[in-house]
Amino acid sequence: MADSTSKKLDFQLYVITGTNYHPGRSMIDVIEQALIGGADIVQLRDKTASKQDIRENAHKLRQLTRRYGVPLIINDHIDIALEAEADGVHLGQDDLSLAEARRLLGPDRIIGISTHSIEQGLAAQAGGADYIGVGPVYPTGTKPGRAAVTTSYVQEAAEQIRIPFVAIGGITLGNVDTVIAAGASRVCAVSEIVGADDPAAVCRAFKARLHAAAPQRSEVQADDFAGTGVIVNGVAQRTTARTVWELICQHRLEDRRVVVELDGEIVVREEWSCTPIHEGAAVELVHFVGGG
């Protein structure tokens, strides 16, 4: 697609939901942690929930991902993707055809296709997919019974596929270096991230491996992907916010009376939008106390 770059497909770390991996914790909390850790794109996938539940989750994830400036992809459900204003859909080989999906979604939305061989990958590319999934690289509990394609398909994809491809399936911090070495510059993980006690930390570790393997990227770009490391109310996190105002918006405080302290001094409200957030910034967001 000629406009694929305008669809913000400059991602490295792709995260997919998997509520069965984090019983007792909400999907929104877990995905927010992943976003704080640096996830670049999020897919809502749920093969067992009711359509109504999926719809509700899509709306919630849409709000969340907007705050972090990250694309949201919906697995399978084109109608829900349209209704929730998601950035696109992801389809399997057995789902609706790429051509029909494109007709329903129009030219501007992202369509990703799962592929399990170089033939399928080339077909998806020719058919107008914006990206493809390459996998499962390793056997995975997310897709039980599907034979692993191993890193040999990753190698083939790196050589022959010209649209973004993301390696997926059983990828962990323990094997990601092998996947990267085979030619992947984008990876996706599910259980390793959303099943972790600290999804943000796992995402940061993935991003560090991907960065280390991509020295040809300019420093500026690498920094963009990583976000800025800041401490907000004592908690270390990464943010894509470039100014105090953007950080306030990401925390949904733009309509609230809050006092903002940056590195020990209060920032007056008028200067929020022109005060940059720098690496290592210590920010305190304090709700104005009005009783008396």
Binding site: D255, R256, R257, V258, V259, I266, V268, R269, E270, H287, F288, V289, G290, G291
Partner: peptide, 14 residues
Amino acid sequence: CLIGDSAADDGTDT
């Protein structure tokens, strides 16, 4: 200058 004048008070705890 510190707390602004346009912010809604709705939702502020009292």
